[in-house]
Design a protein around this nucleic acid. Structure first.
Lengths: 219, 219
DNA sequence: ATCATACAGTTGACAGCGTCATCTGAACCG
DNA sequence: CGGTTCAGATGACGCTGTCAACTGTATGAT
């Protein structure tokens, strides 16, 4: 077929890549429940046990997929921020739209991006050890995903700072980000019905940006 | 032990109640994955097959739990709205806090409340029928949960209308609700770090309400 | 050139899961 | 009193994530 794989490192890297791609594809198609290690392995040309050579388990695999997606979004927002042809307002709107686009085009991935990080033990007895380990256990390397997400946040923060000033950037940045996340989430879950609310996600983002811009200029 | 259960209807109703309570408890403890029909049945004093006499499956059971929670939240907001001792602003802040309180005290339940409703088929082949059926199938009666959620939305809408007028109520209501949802969600997922953003969920809600109130008075 | 090692990948096995078909027994109703 | 209904019990099936044990080959030192 294509280029021969001789060295073990190359082969392993290719397998890891194929596993990540297969997991991302299955995630898009049917959500985290459809991401089966057996099916992921099959699509990557290996068997069910192979993923455990690259990830500590299913959760680790999904976390890695999320990390790559955060990096991709971070790159996208970075390109927006450093584009001299765009106004500050356009950059902000673009960054928020980037997030909402993910929630529209890859809703399952979007939910994985905002999975809760720190999970508490809780009290569940008997044969619930599987759940407990899955909740508290050392799930892959969430630190990588966290760092990628924080890179996106930093890029976003810089865009907001250029609009409302460094002083209020963090407060208004948090407000913009959380609100856009909520708009995306409710649209995704079907709770933002246009007939009921007489508005759309895009209109809400527009109002939000306008209100924050005005408030930021006053301060 | 306690009151004797003679009639079949009483017994069935008691079992259904016990199933719902057990499911809610397990949901709080370990999320949807910890809600096992076997464990739910055990805690309700029945066996694994019994829940299928009251719900079409696990998803239907969780939907029923969500419906009851929405009704509870709706009652709570209704009480706020009709409380003559509260100002319109206080009512709004209280309603938003009611939602955020759920996300703090019962994070897993909160996520179930905002699970996506309409799910699309998608293209996944081979042995993925389980996923497909779970995604598209007739999952219990989501209509009940939808109606309960819409009741909450109506109550919330009335509160907003009293503050910004009937004309802009829907637009600003949607903005307030989605934003609060996003604040709750990001706090829940750990992406709203106080050290990073130099703000808290409560401060964000305060700013949000203030901005919307000012914008609504202008219009 | 040879050999021991590391290690990606395979395989077998296990417990737990959701779900259905089948069966049972007691409450129901004519 | 006898038939029916139906909540619940039980057996079975295929699926899942996970791990222990195994295999074979590229690697690196000799």
């Amino acid at each position: 077929m294509m280029g021969v794989m001789t060295t073990r490192a190359e082969s392993a890297a290719a397998t890891r890549r194929a596993l990540l791609d297969a997991a991302a594809e299955l995630l898009d198609l049917g959500g985290p429940e459809a991401v089966t290690l057996r099916e992921v392995g099959a699509r990557a040309g290996v068997t069910r046990g192979a993923p455990y050579r690259h990830f500590t388990g299913k959760d680790s695999l999904l976390t890695a997929v999320a990390a790559e997606s955060w990096e991709r979004i971070g790159d996208q927002v970075h390109a927006l921020r450093t584009d001299p042809a765009l106004s500050a307002s356009e950059k902000l709107r673009g960054a928020l739209r980037a997030l909402i686009d993910v929630s529209r085009n890859q809703p399952h991935l979007y939910q994985v991006l905002f999975r809760r990080r720190a999970k508490l033990p809780g009290q569940l007895g008997d044969g619930m050890d599987r759940i407990r380990r899955q909740l508290c256990g050392p799930e892959g390397d969430p630190a990588v995903a966290d760092r990628a997400a924080e890179r996106f946040q930093d890029e976003f923060l810089d865009i907001v700072a250029a609009l409302v000033g460094e002083r209020n950037a963090r407060h208004y940045g948090a407000l913009l980000l959380t609100s856009a996340h909520g708009i995306a989430g409710m649209e995704l879950s079907g709770h933002l019905d246009t007939d009921r609310w007489h508005t759309t996600a895009d209109e809400l983002v527009g109002t939000l940006v306008r209100m924050v811009t005005e408030a930021g200029e006053m301060a």
